[in-house]
């Protein structure tokens, strides 16, 4: 097993944990953390491919920097919407928000 595969399996594992947490958890903050795990899995993938395969080693690193920026913006928007929900229903549990049938 070479070291690229180790990184790929690790990031796949991270992605699956994130997906599982997103589906399993009912607290919006925990769901947000799960999403961040999935983003980090993608970043790790980019870094691993970049280190072992890519001809130009700068590309993956720049992508990861962008992902970090996007993740920060995403967290800001998600937290502000979660706060707005908290003001209305006084809870951040998704089970409490049941007006819409889905």
């Amino acid at each position: 097993m070479n070291s690229l595969l180790v990184y790929l399996f690790l990031s796949l594992f991270l992605f699956c944990i994130g997906m599982f947490g997103l589906l399993q958890r009912r607290s919006l903050i925990a769901m947000l953390i799960s999403v961040e795990l999935m983003l980090n899995a993608a970043s790790l993938n980019f870094m691993a491919f970049n280190r072992f395969l890519a001809p130009d080693p700068a590309v993956g690193q720049i992508v990861v920097l962008f992902i970090m920026g996007i993740a920060a913006a995403e967290a800001a928007i998600a937290l502000s919407i979660i706060l707005a929900l908290f003001r209305k229903i006084h809870s951040i549990n998704i089970e409490q928000a049941r007006e819409l049938k889905g």
Binding site: L28, M31, I77, I81, I82, A84, L85, I94, A97, G102
Partner: peptide, 9 residues
């Protein structure tokens, strides 16, 4: 807001 949370996630 509920719709927004759903859309967002």
């Amino acid at each position: 807001v509920e719709a927004a949370v759903k859309y967002l996630f």
